[in-house]
Amino acid sequence: MIPARYAASRFPAKLMQDLAGKPVIVRTYEAAINTQLFDEVYVVTDSDIIYETIEKAGGKVLKSIEEHDCGSDRIAEAVTDLDVDIIVNVQGDEPFTDKESLVSVLDVFKKDPKKEIDLASLMVRITDLEEINNPNTVKVIVDNNNRALYFSRSPIPYPRDKEVESVYFKHKGIYAFRKSALMDFQRLPMLMLEAVEKIEAIRYLEYGKTIKMVETTVSGIEIDTPEDLKRARAEWK
């Protein structure tokens, strides 16, 4: 499932921007299809423009009935009546989505016979100070088993002791959910930490869900700003 909103606070209509001759959302859809990992791939949107664009490109698209504040809610509505076990959320602004990373996320559930993991997601190590301090970059800290402890737009961990080497991970916006966890998300109200950080993954933690993080070396480019789009165009070439 690829949730796709037309409006975006930092970069309105970013999913319809041209990337090597096609809109960003079409490039992302094609990237997910090309992995050949999924039974079905859908774009889920509230936008007539995006809906018609995906249809014209020959893709599968669903129209949201209700208004939603985040991708998890949008996907939950779309899969409510579907007989599925695992749902993967690929963000619409991730045209560089790669097969290797998705395989590693799906493997989490294959190695979880007791079904202790509710979600799996990706993180990539970052060292650039500007990116570490950038609030548009969501950071994650994990325990010894790579289970998420917290997500933040602030630099975490805070380097109080400068003599201790700090390791920072950026959270990549790809999730795999058990359907039950996604349905719980939809019915549970937003709490303070999610509200103040504006990071939907925090809701799962606040309600005791277990998120297994998988480290990847594939950083890709998430298109959040016009500057990101320029980088993506250069990388695509």
Rank of each mutant, 00 (worst) to 15 (best):
E165H: 12
A31C: 04
L191E: 15
P12L: 07
S166T: 11
I223Q: 00
H68I: 07
I75M: 11
V218D: 12
L102F: 00
P113K: 04
Y150K: 01
D48E: 13
K60F: 03
V26N: 05
G21C: 01
R147T: 14
V214Y: 10
N34K: 14
I221M: 04
V218G: 02
E52F: 00
D228K: 09
A4L: 03
E30G: 00
T80E: 14
D228A: 08
E200L: 02
V44W: 01
K14H: 14
Q36F: 08
N146C: 08
K198L: 13
E55W: 01
D224M: 09
Q36G: 09
K110D: 10
E222S: 15
D18H: 06
V24F: 05
D118K: 10
I126H: 01
Y51V: 01
I87A: 03
S154D: 13
P159I: 04
E67H: 11
T80K: 15
A234M: 13
M16L: 15
D46S: 14
A57L: 04
D39H: 14
W236E: 09
E30Q: 13
R203T: 02
F96G: 05
L129S: 09
E206L: 04
N144K: 12
P157Q: 03
T217V: 12
Y29R: 02
Y168Q: 00
P189L: 05
V124T: 15
M190Y: 13
N34A: 09
Y207C: 06
L15R: 02
K110A: 15
M183P: 06
G173S: 15
T216G: 04
R27G: 07
T28H: 02
L229W: 11
L82W: 10
I65F: 12
T127Q: 11
L188V: 13
V108G: 06
Q186E: 12
T127P: 04
F38K: 06
V79R: 05
R178H: 08
A76P: 10
D46W: 03
A148T: 03
Y204E: 04
V196K: 14
M183G: 02
M190F: 11
I54T: 07
D93P: 00
A78S: 13
D73L: 14
K198E: 13
A20I: 06
Y175C: 02
V140L: 06
S154M: 13
Y51K: 09
V214C: 08
K56D: 13
Y42R: 12
S64G: 14
I54D: 07
V138C: 06
V43R: 05
D39Q: 14
K198N: 14
K99G: 07
P95F: 07
L188A: 11
A234S: 12
I87M: 06
F109C: 07
M213T: 03
I202S: 00
D128I: 05
L191I: 12
V164D: 08
A120S: 15
E227G: 01
K63A: 09
D46L: 01
V105A: 09
E67P: 00
V164S: 10
I33L: 15
N89T: 05
K179D: 07
A232F: 04
G220I: 02
L149Q: 00
